[in-house]
Design a protein around this nucleic acid. Structure first.
Lengths: 337, 337
DNA sequence: AGCTCTCATTGGAGCGCTCTATTGTGCCCG
DNA sequence: CGGGCACAATAGAGCGCTCCAATGAGAGCT
């Protein structure tokens, strides 16, 4: 910076002003500085800037699972919103199924990001609270107190799935749950409550948000005497893996078993999959999370929870438990196949 | 840090040594410092550290497209290898289909990362060269000179696909290409060379690496009088979208048209998809890229290109061009739909 | 002309850390 | 018993930037 100042024949402070795009610099000097910087190949040092500034104008985002495509849409919207507010995004992942989430968070704390956004956190409430004491934290998809939360109404999502299946006439429904995954417990609760409310039999098979879980759950179910006529999976990935295994066992979806997923990822929308699923407004979630972080940085002190509403996307993996008239397929787009 | 030093009754320099895990500190003092730091909730400031240190011990990774699941495996291996060498990873994405890639790169340059890894770059060679002058750059999947490159032998990949299809008896093959995408041109070249070498007809339909491309390419092909009997898609996503559209048009895969993808993502491995595809050794790519960056940081000056070898994974979307006995479906699960 | 006012420009302190050289302390060995 | 030695600990000078208060130069007004 000193070199640039010398080259342009101005002071170091003036160069600083130009680099930050300050309006209180005369055009003449600005051009001289810009030219000198270009000539010398000067690029400001972010570390030094951050050290001298109070704010870093950076949001740290920790992604729970890079393999889960669900996050990309949220991130897109998050990025657009953050950029509009003059924030930069820095990403990190909770590598190895969340094992390194604390490390990722601590790294960002050391970087003094203005706020932290956790995209699907698996941290213990205690650990989270400790981190939140150091830096504003927005958890996406969590259900914790003491930090900002943006989440889908997953309980309602579970209910939507059950209501749909009950309407179709199902009376015995299984749920493959998401274990520790974000929102999994709420989906399960919605499932169980709705099943109870409608007086249908239910069973919950433990799992996580992985493909393996979907397959294993089906194997588990196949060992029983009576198979449920419908399955509500913790997410689309699990649902697809479940369908996969069901078909491998010679069962037809939805004729023998209906399957409903969760997340409405593009995977569900593929015609080869064409999965009935609960849709989360992902872009809205990203946008709200960015605004939320923004407000925290701007001074709001009390944590807030934003709940966005899911809806059901009915596709071809759900149908009535049995076909009343064998010749008539109830499947919406069954005729096309 | 001064506070911690005072609290522990030592000098600031000693606290610094403890925070960096130096072995030349007596256990007694170390414990005193650690205790004091914990009591005060002290956390070192990364910006200050980076400013004072020469190296940042950080690799910047720019991901071309977060929606493409291909990257996650590469990143996992990259992370493991980088961490083993004492490096931290910082991620950023080239949001909006690569439009912000330069921004992402410049951000990392300002952060003074030790090296930059571009996961699928679409930068112009000139821009890339300019960046490479400032910081070691490893491009994954590119084909540029002047920087380190780790890439799959995509030309060979294209050849593998064609050889497989020719062996099955196809004589008119289409390629849906990946446009500007990483490796797309090499796949096309391999495709064209192999088609020429085997004397089969070929056609290339322009596109990119997106789902939309797959669908549009099929619509384009359907307008022609003669449909190719096999299609080699630029990647799995395109292939799946293509299959989708083919089936929507009443065509059967592979009975009427064979489809081969590229990348062997988990999407291809799903049984509902079960796609024949060219496999890239993703984890190896990640590992090599990390080592490559490491070597550059350690002083190697001349750029190197590492080429890893692909192989073909044959699944159920490829078969002979016509079914000899009309009653026999060649597709494993064809009878279910 | 003389004075104030405004605004572009500047000097210098300081952000929180690391690093080099230096001081201090106890120990071994001739 | 004293000189050297190894090693723990420290002081102080930056790293490259921003920010604040202060300076200088015109412009406007009486």
């Amino acid at each position: 910076m000193d070199d640039v100042a010398a080259e342009a024949g101005v002071s170091r402070a003036l160069v600083s002003l130009v680099m930050r795009g300050s309006p209180k610099v005369s055009d003449q000097r600005r051009e001289a500085v810009v030219a000198a910087a270009a000539r010398l190949g000067y690029r400001p040092n972010a570390a030094a800037r951050r050290l001298a500034e109070r704010r870093s104008n950076t949001l740290g985002v920790v992604i729970d699972d890079l393999h889960n495509t669900y996050h990309a849409d949220v991130l897109d919207a998050l990025h657009v919103e953050a950029e509009a507010n003059g924030f930069r995004l820095l990403l990190n992942a909770a590598w190895l199924r969340g094992r390194n989430e604390s490390q990722a968070v601590e790294m960002f704390l050391e970087y003094r990001v203005d706020a932290l956004i956790l995209l699907g956190s698996r941290l213990e409430p205690d650990a989270l609270a400790a981190f939140a004491a150091e830096c504003p934290i927005v958890v996406i998809g969590g259900e914790v107190s003491g930090v900002d939360v943006v989440r889908n109404d997953d309980k309602r999502g579970g209910e939507l799935a059950v209501e749909h299946l009950v309407e179709l006439g199902h009376t015995y429904i299984a749920h493959i749950d998401g274990g520790e995954g974000a929102g999994a417990d709420r989906r399960r609760r919605g499932f169980l409550d709705a099943c109870a409310a409608h007086g249908v039999r239910s069973v919950v098979i433990p799992g996580d948000f992985s493909e393996e879980t979907g397959a294993e759950a089906i194997e588990h179910l196949l060992r029983d005497d009576e198979l449920p006529t419908a399955i509500f999976a913790a997410n689309d990935l699990v649902a697809v893996a479940a369908i996969d295994r069901l078909e491998a066992a010679g069962l037809k979806v939805p004729d023998d078993v209906s399957v409903v997923g969760y997340d409405n990822t593009w995977l569900a929308a593929l015609r080869t999959v064409d999965l009935t699923t609960v849709n989360q407004p992902r872009r809205e979630i990203g946008r709200v999370a960015a605004r939320c972080a923004q407000q925290r940085v701007d001074g709001r002190s009390s944590p807030v929870t934003h709940v966005v509403t899911p809806d059901l996307v009915v596709r071809s993996t759900s149908g009535p438990p049995s076909v009343p008239l064998p010749e008539v397929s109830r499947r919406v787009r069954g005729g096309q196949r």
